[in-house]
Design a protein around this nucleic acid. Structure first.
Lengths: 230, 230
DNA sequence: GTTATAAAGTGTAAAAAATACAATTAAATA
DNA sequence: TATTTAATTGTATTTTTTACACTTTATAAC
């Protein structure tokens, strides 16, 4: 039987690490933990934890994220397994990296604070332990690829958002500036972006119309060959 | 210290499984193992093996591939970790899937035979054990994404290949038929495709010119903003 | 040695997509 | 009432993608 055969094999600790993206005031940020004890005191790390006996990696990552932010059903996707022998100087630990997209305002501020976690601007990250910088790099690369063909960016925005907000998000993700007329032109070809009657007046006197992403309409459009592309 | 903390954690067997793509006679194929003993006798599986104490997942996958085919320095990329609790009905085993692209002719036929491995047409795969079908699906999806913007398809061809061969490869990867004039037009914009003086006459009386992919020129072109795209 | 065969090789026009670019509108505040 | 600031709108140009058919080359058959 399998069991007998497997018994000779080495077993490993397997952790998950989460690259949690947020977006506010036109900037992408990551939710990071500040170590307040040795070793590596003062250094920063990605939120993570060990996979438990009865968990898949995906469930473990969702647990870590839920514990930290109070959020469930968050957009999350696995990046890959990081397994270099010395990636953790303490002991051999493999780690599966996940990236998550959340709306900062939805997270539980107190819970985040209690875990000694802080939102740090993606363009100005502190030094991170282990291979966490590599994980972040990998996550950003993946985010850029995914966000261009799938409507995942909306997970970083409130339920209702304005066109200028959406544009600022894409400008932040790709680090470019986009012509607003061309940007709106693309949006017009997406029947799953629903224009609401209400305006958001927090960032201008005139106010900008609020929109929402209609998941059902998106699925319908996809079947008709209309794809998301930004 | 870390060690003390880690000791409470569960450890896991971690395997690698390889989706090894080949291309011959206009068709993609996978190198699969046929089980000639129980359990699951007669069923097919992806080539794989356990990660050993002093190996990274990448090294383990390269070892598995080298043992099976005699090939080193093969194009290989990690897909992700598969970790569903019951994915292996025998015991809890996590598995990292890798996909590899090899030139079938380069592999050691006897070695492959000895491991009870066979090339099976991708369009006519046998039933596979565990979550291996999911891994294959994931690999094909990744291959399609990667092959469209990176010159990785050449790993499936001989060192020197013809334009019709290259076109047939891309037609096989994407399951479409491509206009040969438009295909050649795109190739003309790629200075790293070197036309040789020799012809391959195995598939036509007239013969088709052989080309090779020049990696150095590719890197140079990339710096100049010329990207691979097919 | 002429002819038949089969795959390799070639160019252009039309359509679609991406890009560049500037004035007007709306609402609050001075 | 005038000023301010961000939101909103359309068109012309360029680039890219797509559609499409005949000629060339070398071998094999006659």
């Amino acid at each position: 039987m399998y069991q007998t055969f497997y018994r000779d094999q080495t077993q490993f600790y397997v952790a998950v690490d989460c690259i949690i993206f947020g977006f506010s005031e036109g900037r992408l940020s990551l939710l990071l933990l500040k170590r307040n004890m040795e070793p590596a005191k003062g250094q920063w790390s990605l939120p993570g934890g060990f996979i438990e006996a009865q968990e898949s990696a995906e469930v473990a990552a969702a647990r870590v994220l839920s514990t930290l932010t109070g959020l469930d059903e968050v957009y999350m996707d696995q990046l890959m397994l990081f397994s270099k022998i010395d990636r953790d100087p303490g002991e051999r630990v493999l780690s599966v990296a996940f990236y998550a997209l959340i709306n900062v305002a939805d997270s539980n501020r107190e819970q985040v604070r209690l875990h000694n976690a802080y939102w740090r601007d993606l363009d100005d990250l502190p030094a991170l332990i282990f291979d966490h910088p590599e994980m972040v790099h990998s996550a950003l690369k993946r985010l850029r690829i995914e966000a261009s063909t799938k409507p995942i960016g909306f997970n970083l925005l409130p339920e209702r958002f304005t066109v200028p907000q959406l544009q600022a998000l894409y400008e932040a993700i790709y680090g470019i500036s986009i012509d607003k007329r061309n940007f709106r032109k693309k949006l017009q070809s997406m029947p799953f972006l629903v224009k609401l009657d209400e305006k958001d007046k927090t960032s201008s006197k005139r106010g900008a119309y609020l929109y929402s992403f209609d998941k059902e309409r998106y699925e319908k459009a996809k079947l008709e060959g209309i794809h998301f592309a930004l």
